[in-house]
């Protein structure tokens, strides 16, 4: 493997109260992969993303983005939180939410202008939501809200995208639309890391996978490591029941 390492995680340990949620995670994510993080409920998938992004403070460990600490590389990283993490009744429009993706590059106090608006409109177009730009966000369907979140991350024009369950509660059409956008991102050399629940679609959607259950079970190309052995190690003996559901 001669690929550059986009995200390097060493000895990452996170605990709420007493119980460790993540235990001693070492993980190197190569540049340009579309990676799924899979694991059962409570495996620490969201926590892993959140501690990489410094939203949760780890007890130990370090995160490097292209060889430098995350805090110095924020502008290279975009985040799509879980859709349920915000209040969609907030008084704002779809366009306004997407504009928020430009706030990071603007920095403190400076207001978004025409340039930012244009970027936001382009992102809305890319996710097929341009017609809804002035819609109040509570009046969007779950799938549309997810697209808005995706557009907000696209506006950031980052190199690495972290997404927390972007397929949760969206219909099949939206899922296809989103995965196409993610594949396009990969094609243009970006690294995309997705917390994913549907094991059946892993081989179709992703080329890289990390099995996680508090500890890292395995990580690597889907074609090499997405097998019964690793699935059993991650989900226990009953994982087949989960897949067939």
């Amino acid at each position: 493997m001669s690929k550059k390492i986009a995200v390097q995680i060493d000895d990452l340990t996170v605990a709420y109260n007493y119980k460790p949620v993540l235990w001693d995670i070492d993980l190197a994510i190569p540049e340009g992969v579309l990676m799924a993080i899979v694991g059962p409920n409570g495996a620490g998938k969201s926590t892993l993303i959140k501690s990489i992004l410094d939203i949760i403070k780890p007890i130990a460990g370090s995160v490097q983005i292209y060889g430098k600490p995350y805090k110095k590389q924020r502008s290279l990283v975009a985040y799509v939180p879980q859709k349920g993490s915000v209040d969609w009744d907030f008084p704002t429009t779809a366009l306004d939410v997407v504009m928020m993706g430009t706030y990071g590059s603007l920095g403190w106090i400076k207001r978004p202008g025409q340039k930012q608006k244009k970027a936001a409109l382009e992102a809305l177009e890319k996710v097929g939501m341009l017609a809804f730009k002035n819609r109040q966000i509570s009046q969007l369907s779950g799938g549309q809200q997810q697209r808005i979140f995706l557009a907000r991350a696209l506006v950031q024009n980052a190199s690495i995208y972290f997404m927390d369950e972007p397929f949760q509660g969206v219909d099949a059409t939206t899922e296809k639309a989103i995965i196409n956008i993610l594949k396009e991102l990969r094609k243009s050399g970006k690294t995309v890391i997705v917390v994913h629940h549907d094991l059946q679609t892993v081989p179709e959607y992703f080329d890289w996978v990390t099995f996680l259950n508090v500890k890292k079970i395995a990580t690597g190309p889907v074609k090499d490591i997405f097998n019964d052995d690793n699935l059993t190690k991650t989900y226990g003996i009953n994982y087949k029941v989960a897949v067939s559901q």
Binding site: K50, L53, D54, I55, R74, V77, A78, Y79, P81, S85, V86, D87, F90, T92, V97, M100, Y103, G104, R152
Partner: peptide, 9 residues
């Protein structure tokens, strides 16, 4: 609207 996201920016 979104405190976690704000932090990542």
């Amino acid at each position: 609207f979104d405190a976690d996201y704000t932090k990542t920016l």
